[in-house]
């Protein structure tokens, strides 16, 4: 599961580090480190982290079938407002 965090947007609220600690960790007071290709077993945790991020900074790759459906429907896949 690929993911990327827009660290311009990130303000270090650390919600993701709390909800998906195997994927996101705080490094110092404010810096975030994350695994850009998290194991699938953390998918639910990551989904919670995406939903909880107060600034909407986390983008997770949508499943391929979702992407196909979204393309037909012409709506954004990820919900990440970049």
């Amino acid at each position: 599961m690929r993911l990327v965090v827009d660290l311009n947007r990130c303000q270090g609220y650390a919600q993701c580090a709390f909800l998906a600690p195997d994927v996101f960790t705080m490094h110092g007071e404010e810096s975030l480190l994350y695994d850009p290709e998290a194991l699938d077993e953390h998918r639910e945790d990551v989904a919670r982290a995406v939903a909880a991020c107060p600034v909407g900074a986390i983008l997770v790759e949508a499943a391929t079938s979702d992407a196909r459906a979204a393309r037909t429907a012409r709506v954004p896949v990820s919900g990440g407002a970049w």
């Binding site: 690929r2 990327v4 480190l33 695994d35 850009p36 949508a62 393309r71 954004p76 990820s78």
Partner: peptide, 27 residues
């Protein structure tokens, strides 16, 4: 792939350079 992790997570051994591909927003 995403470059910022290369000088951070990757050098700290917390992610590998081979696994930095960017997530796709869509096909």
């Amino acid at each position: 792939y995403d470059r910022p992790p290369l000088s951070k997570q990757v050098l700290l051994g917390k992610a590998t350079a081979e696994h930095t591909a960017l997530p796709r927003r869509r096909e």
